[in-house]
Amino acid sequence: MRRRRPVEPLVWLLFSGGGVVTAILVPVLLVLLGLAFPLGWIDPPPYEHIHAVLGHWIARIVLLGLCVLGFVHWAHRFRYTLHEGLKLQRLDAQISLLCYGLALIGSVWAVYILLFTG
């Protein structure tokens, strides 16, 4: 029987937080950045405007929260997708390491971009 690790509730909390934040923020951002601007439905904002918005500390903190929680959300869900979907229960330790490890690397990258550049 698999032992329940004490970090499991914390990961679950971060997973849920990521689920909420991404559910609310990702659709509008994806429509704008991924479709409306590239396909010319809406003119992309002038550089000065978008630079001012993204340079504000509130935007940095909100985006950092979105990125870190979103990565953890992915890691947790993808771990269970591999686990149940491909029946890889026996590789749980390796899969967890891979998923949470990638989420950690992504989060460090997000901290670097949002807090230490621009």
Partner: peptide, 14 residues
Amino acid sequence: FIVFLLLFVRAVYQ
């Protein structure tokens, strides 16, 4: 999308 968003933010900062 989060990777895409971070690339966007990085580009704006650069």
